[in-house]
Design a protein around this nucleic acid. Structure first.
Length: 807
RNA sequence: GCGGGCGUGGCGAAAUUGGCAGACGCGCUAGACUUAGGAUCUAGUUCUUAGGAGUGCAGGUUCAAGUCCUGUCGCCCGCACCA
């Protein structure tokens, strides 16, 4: 053997093992294995031109470690990767540089694959998918058509969020706070024909399914909040001298006697309907115009300042007491929620209170407990109803029941649920997305593309530019637009809008099970074998969008008998983001971006892997720290340098035995609980212990290599080979601990006085309580502290401490 | 405004869920060895008047509080005129 070098050559070793693993397909999953399956999934990346980010590394590492551990535990592991490649950055880059997005995408994917491999991720690269591949998006389109077939797709003219800069319609999810998710421009409201997916039909199922999901509370809460269910009632208020009623939604029908006026949204259809009777129609229409000009963001920003106009000429009749009350138009009521109209109860709602104060409207207290001369009394759980003939003296919960029954019996109202979540606006006016498989025929109307004609492929054209009218660039491509009607064979035109970014990712976990199937999205047999995703890790930012969308698609596919499980994911976790070393979010403009490839170049993939997991609790956001990398590298080098001290031996060294079993237990548990940082700390502690010895047995050394392998796979694999093994560590067994070996015969007990540490003693594990007390009181250190004091009592906590309470 | 989380050395962080605060790592200090390396090894490293004090701040419960309770300040994330 040549001279032993005290620091390993990461470049050589890592390249060597990556070639062995990937060329021999060591990480490929088997569809026909006898072994128990394990499906671990990470959110597939968008292959941006910038290549891999440190965030990708951290996001994928957790399940790479788990997947590697599972293989060692004898599982048939499916740990796939793919690319969510449709999207605006690629299209924008394509337009700017006159390169087709196909070419850009292919190049970016190549870069990504190389980068993923250089980090040593144990993905099954044979199952790679690309959402922009017609063989893939054929099935995205297929699912859309299935939804259409089942009445979950509809077209409507609607006010949509439109980004004037990206020239694209945005979903609510993409336009939070009135800003475009991508370019941060102010979003405007635009009336457009929109394809909607009826996700609200699945609101209840999406809520129920959360019970089965294994995740932390935050992940469930954010989804619950997003769906935003409110239980309450619809109530119909008759309109004076008319057979029409104004329907409102309220969560508090018990406060109906306090309803002193009504408010409708500026877009409410009754303004048009009662145009003839409205005396101040000019004033009302002027208000409507003004409201339209405000972006949604402005409407929220100006929230403090309530504005409105009374609609003169019509009144609403409170159906429980027959009182005629005024109707106002105001933009604090949204047309998109509930019925676009409310009964205002100023005494018990802060917004209504504000409005009533401003316009000098009557405020009637119906729940006792607050002081409505000062502010609205809203925290009414303990309150008692007053001024409400039918329900006076009742507690709120009883009043709610009684009044609801009354409303239902008298056909004034009905129980109802409302959701914050709205139907999913599903079309985009862009080129680089899945074409929506719909054809418009003058004779037959809207005709879905027949299943056998899928996929509707994107045409490869030289130039495409977004149109100013908000139409897709596809609209300019005649060869795409013009087609035959599948029903009558006549001239027809294709839908030119494409699907949103979220489409392809809504079912990709299914495709991995059977990625090359050209007959079905995946075969039933394979879906039965692979079942649910056992563990899905991704970003917190996708918990409300992608996670809900994909759960919705899966539930739909389950309902029509295509997939096997109601819920796609068994367990979901989310990594904390890595901030720049300045504790700010990484961004090019701040110049605090860490490039993982540079780190691999300088320190090697094993060091990057170890450090990214060691830096902090996996679920918390943490600033990056370049210097810390050295520590990770030092740790790996220490293990490397131990190699010459390893002597043959089939058992653990006696004095290390307990530490080894403790470490095995601790590390395994930590890895399962996402506590990678403490798992690595425990391995470091063990290594420090090893380092105090001149000699180690091969068993001592190998157990360390096996424990560390999922985290630092290259260097451990190399050392494994150096030990003379001919098989790979990748499929070696994961160490197990022996409970009996954890038992200590001697325990260090703490002796404290009034809770303050005063002494420590080493005692036999079998010591009795009495003996301990005696020992404690007789300790020299303790005696000196007890001088002149009186012992009140002694508390003994077995295995831990003795506390002497003195006066 | 509502919901969730966080606040611990010079820094990143641990703390078996109420029982030795600061594991592990970075950095720093001193020494050793020089194969001058991305070194390595050894010792030390919360503060401090050596008695203590100490987990954002102020109280409380307890034999015992970073951990539980009440109040308060600061930061982060999500939602936001949702009726």
């Amino acid at each position: 053997m040549s001279e032993f070098i005290p620091s390993f050559n990461d470049k050589l070793i890592e390249k060597k093992w990556q070639e062995i693993w990937y060329n021999n397909k060591y990480f490929n999953a088997f569809d026909d294995s006898e072994k128990e399956k394990y499906y671990s999934l990470v959110e597939f990346p968008y292959p941006s031109g910038a290549g891999m980010h440190i965030g990708h590394i951290r996001a994928y590492l957790s399940l790479d470690v788990i997947s590697r551990k599972r293989r060692m535990e004898g599982k048939n592991v499916l740990f796939p990767i793919g690319f969510d490649a449709f999207g605006l950055p690629t299209e924008n880059y394509a337009i700017k540089n006159q390169i087709h997005p196909r070419i850009i995408t292919d190049n970016n994917i190549k870069t990504f694959i190389n980068q993923l491999k250089s980090a040593g991720f144990s993905f099954d690269f044979s199952r790679m998918i690309d959402t922009t591949d017609p063989d893939y998006y054929r099935w995205t389109q297929w699912i859309f058509l299935k939804m259409y077939e089942h009445g979950l797709v509809y077209k409507d003219i609607a006010y949509v969020n439109f980004c004037p800069s990206c020239k694209v319609v945005l979903s609510n999810e993409e336009s939070q706070g009135g800003k475009c998710d991508r370019c941060d421009s102010d979003v405007v409201q635009m009336e457009k024909p929109v394809w909607f997916l009826k996700i609200t039909d699945y609101a209840e199922k999406l809520l129920d399914g959360l019970d089965e999901l294994e995740s932390n509370q935050r992940i469930k809460l954010e989804q619950q909040k997003w769906i935003g269910r409110s239980k309450g009632a619809y109530i119909k208020f008759p309109i004076s001298c008319s057979d029409k009623t104004l329907k409102v939604f309220t969560t508090r029908p018990d406060t109906i006697y306090g309803a002193t006026f009504m408010v409708i949204a500026p877009e409410h259809p009754y303004i048009e309907a009662f145009k003839e009777r409205i005396i101040n129609i000019n004033e009302v229409e002027a208000y409507q115009e003004q409201a339209k000009l405000k972006t949604e963001f402005e409407r929220i920003e100006l929230a403090k300042d309530k504005t409105g106009v009374e609609i003169k000429g019509i009144k609403a009749i409170n159906p429980v007491n027959g009182k005629a009350i005024p109707i106002f138009i105001s933009d604090y009521v949204m047309i998109t929620y509930g019925t676009g109209a409310i009964m205002a109860v100023p005494a018990h709602d802060t917004r209504d209170y504000e409005f009533a104060k401003k316009y000098n409207l009557e405020i009637v207290e119906v729940i006792k407990g607050g002081d409505i001369t000062k502010e609205a009394y809203t925290n009414t759980e303990e309150g008692v109803l007053v001024n409400s003939p039918l329900i006076n003296g009742l507690k709120v919960s009883d009043a709610l029941n009684k009044i609801t029954n009354y409303l239902v019996e008298n056909k004034i109202g009905e129980e109802a649920k409302q959701y914050r979540m709205k139907d999913w606006a599903f079309n985009r006016q862009r080129y680089w997305g899945e074409p929506i498989p719909i054809i418009y025929c003058d004779k037959c109307g809207i005709v879905p593309v027949p299943y056998e004609d899928l996929p509707v492929t994107l045409p490869m054209v030289e130039k495409f530019i977004p149109t100013d009218t908000g139409e897709s660039p596809l609209a300019n491509i005649d060869s795409f637009v013009n087609c035959k009607c599948p029903k009558c064979g006549g001239q027809a035109k294709r839908e030119t809008d494409t699907m949103p970014q979220w489409a392809g990712s809504s079912w990709y976990y299914l495709r991995y099970m059977d990625p090359h199937n050209n007959k079905e999205l995946a075969s039933r047999e394979k879906m039965e074998y692979w079942g649910q995703v056992d563990w899905y890790n991704g970003g917190m930012e996708h918990v409300t969008r992608h996670l809900i969308y994909s759960r919705f698609w899966n539930q739909f596919l389950y309902d029509i008998g295509v997939v096997v499980n109601k819920e796609p994911y068994k367990k979901r976790t989310a990594q904390g983001i890595i901030l720049g070393s300045d504790n700010e979010k990484m961004s090019k403009s701040r110049g605090n971006v860490v490039n993982p490839m540079e780190i691999i170049d300088e320190y090697g993939a094993d060091t990057l892997r170890t450090f990214s997991l060691f830096i902090s609790d996996y679920e918390m956001a943490t600033p990056w720290n370049d210097l810390g990398l050295k520590g990770a590298r030092r740790f790996l080098d220490k293990i490397w340098r131990m190699f010459p001290n390893v002597k043959t031996g089939d058992n653990y060294s006696k004095d290390l035995e307990r530490s080894i079993h403790e470490t095995i237990k601790g590390v395994s548990e930590d890895l399962e609980n996402l506590k990678f940082n403490t798992a690595i700390a425990k391995l470091m502690t063990l290594v420090n212990e090893y380092n105090k010895k001149d000699e180690l047995t091969t068993s001592d050394y190998e157990v360390l290599l096996r424990l560390l392998n999922p985290i630092a796979p290259h260097v451990t694999e190399e050392l494994w080979e150096m030990l003379g093994h001919e098989t790979l560590l990748v499929y070696e067994t994961y160490p197990e601990y022996d409970e009996k070996k954890l038992v200590k015969d001697e325990i260090e007990m703490v002796i404290s006085i009034n809770g303050k540490l005063r002494d420590k003693v080493l005692v036999d594990a079998s010591i009795t309580k009495k003996e301990l007390e005696k020992l404690a009181v007789e300790s020299k250190k303790i005696i000196s502290h007890l001088e002149g004091k009186q012992i009140v009592k002694i508390i003994v906590v077995p295995q831990k401490l003795v506390n002497i309470v003195v006066k």
